[in-house]
Structures are given as C-alpha cells and as structure tokens.
C-alpha cells in the first residue's frame, strides 16, 4: 500500500486517542456481573462451600467416619454442632465432607457434559446434513427418557457407585448442552461476519474456532452454572435411592435417606444435609440467573 495518504475527510470523532477506556465486551459483562446483587450472593454461597470443602480436615475435630457408640443420635450441642447420627458420627463433619463430594460430582459431571455436548452441537450445527441428523436424533433419544430414570438405568447397568452416578449425570445432561450449542451455532452461522470470514477465504475450522465458538459459548456457561445445581440434586437423588454414593461416604442424599427412620426422634439428622443441598442449589441458581441477566439480557422476563 502506498504511503501518500490522500486527504479523505474523516468522520467527526468525539474522543481523542486513548481518552476512553477500551474494554472488551467480556470485561464489560464481568463488571456488570459484579454489580448484580443476587448473582454475587449466589457466588458467595458457592465460594463458601468450596472454601469449607477445601479446608474441611482443618476445621474438624472428628473424622466423618468416626463412630462413637456412646454418642448416638445426639441433638446439636457445643460438642457436636449439628448433632450425631445413629452411628454416633458427627453430622457437621459429614455435611462438610459431603460438600466435597457434591461439588466434585457436579463439577466433573457438568464439565463432561459441556465438553461432549458442545462438541456434538458444534458439529451438528456447523456441518448440518447427515451429521446433524445423527446427532440430533441421538439427543432426541436421550431426551425421550425422564432424566432421572435414564440416570438410574445407566447406574443400574454400570453398577451403583459415586463414580458411575457421575457418569450417568454427565450423560443425561449432554443433550441439554448439545442442543443449546447447536441452536447457537445455527444462529451465529447466519451472521454477516461469518459470511465475511468466508468471503475473506477463511477455512471452515478457523471460522468455527475464531468466529462461531466465541460468539456461542455464553449461553453454555449460563446453562452450565444452572446445570451444576441440577447435577448436585441429581447426585443427591441417586444417593438417596442407593444408586450413587455407597456407605460410608458422607453424601448428602445418602445421609437424607439414612435418616428417614429418625425424622421425628432426631430431625437434625435430616435438616442439616437437606439445608446443605438447598443452599448449594440456591447458590448455583442465583449465580446462573445473574449470568443470564448479564450475558443474555433478552432472556430476562
């Protein structure tokens, strides 16, 4: 390009060089998120649970499996903050170790569904044709079963364990992310800037990763946060019916089911794990709703 720039009239520019902070849309959104009150409350709850899950061994005078036959079904006290269960185990310790289990299961299950679902959705949406038909029908089949039933079926096949429950939760959530990604890709694919990228001569793969993916992942992130809450619930549900965590693992759902017999005589055995589930789910839902408000304002009711 020649260097003798002819005088081409410039459009009036309100601001001079570097006078205004130049922010990426992402950073703008993050700032909006920090101002979102309920999202921050949700984030706080989650952080709190993550923190206590991490430092659990330092907090606790009792191991979660420490049985004390002399202290069975004791009410909450200074010694046992949340009371004890029918084996005399400290419920506070078990609830806190339970946070480790629930967050771990939720994280790996949802990460797995996001990776697999997004990849399938991306392929289906971008390439279309038989790949789309195959993948979409697969999603339809998975979605034809009630999610928890499908999870039970998968665990029944693999054998009941916490790990298998995690796989099951990952599998049943794949179509959610897959469909979401597919629909985003179909929409973004139609955008002029994707057409422009093709007009430039950009290769398909590069268009996919450089234009389509960066404009498609925010709903996945929102859904992922909300899905985390569902995954925690599903893990608890599987634990409750004995298809997830196996004794003596201190899984919240399992703790609930073990304490059914003592609802009236020792309600604390049930209240505290129940509260823990509720708070975790609430935290992720609040954060997810906040993310949605910030990243996808059109979804706001």
């Amino acid at each position: 390009m020649s260097t003798n720039t002819p005088t081409i009239q410039k459009e009036e520019q309100g601001t001079g060089p570097g006078t205004e902070p130049v922010d990426s849309p992402l950073r703008d959104n993050l700032r909006a998120l920090l101002r979102h009150r309920s999202a921050m409350i949700g984030g706080g709850i989650i952080l709190f649970f993550i923190l206590i899950a991490l430092i659990a061994p330092l907090l606790l005078p009792y191991g979660y499996n420490q049985i004390d036959p002399d202290a069975r079904l004791q009410a909450p006290s200074g010694e046992h903050w949340f009371g004890t269960d029918d084996f005399g185990r400290d419920i506070f310790a078990r609830v806190i170790y339970g946070a480790r289990i629930s967050l771990w299961v939720g994280f790996f299950a949802i990460s797995g569904s996001i990776v697999v679902g997004s990849a399938l959705g991306l392929i289906a949406g971008f390439y279309g044709g038989w790949r789309d038909t195959l993948i979409s029908r697969l999603f339809d089949i998975l979605l034809a079963f009630p999610a928890i039933l499908l999870a039970i079926a998968i665990v029944a096949m693999l054998g009941p364990s916490l790990e298998n429950a995690m796989y099951a939760i990952a599998i049943i959530n794949v179509p959610t992310f897959g469909r979401l990604m597919r629909s985003r890709v179909l929409a973004v694919k139609q955008e002029d800037y994707v057409l422009a990228a093709r007009a430039i001569g950009m290769k398909d793969r590069r268009i996919l990763f450089s234009h389509i993916l960066p404009n498609s992942w925010t709903p996945i992130m929102v859904q992922g946060t909300l899905g985390f809450a569902t995954a925690v619930l599903e893990a608890a549900a599987l634990g409750f019916i004995g298809m997830g965590a196996q004794p003596p693992e201190p899984e919240w759902g399992k703790m609930l089911s073990d304490s059914r017999a003592f609802i009236q005589s020792a309600p604390w055995t049930m209240v505290f794990p129940g509260l823990a589930i509720m708070l975790t789910v609430l935290g992720f839902n609040l954060l997810g709703d906040g993310l949605r408000d910030v990243f996808d304002p059109r979804m706001k009711q």
């Binding site: 990426s24 849309p25 992402l26 955008e191 002029d192 800037y193 057409l195 422009a196 990228a197 007009a199 430039i200 234009h211 960066p214 404009n215």
Partner: peptide, 15 residues
C-alpha cells in the same frame, strides 16, 4: 474479490 456488506452492525464480529 471481496465483499462489503449492508449491515455494518452485523458484519463485524462483536468480540
């Protein structure tokens, strides 16, 4: 050969 598009709001990747 290149192309200039109609809608200047849709033809630039916002990110």
């Amino acid at each position: 050969m290149q192309m200039v598009f109609q809608d200047p709001f849709a033809s630039l990747n916002p990110r």
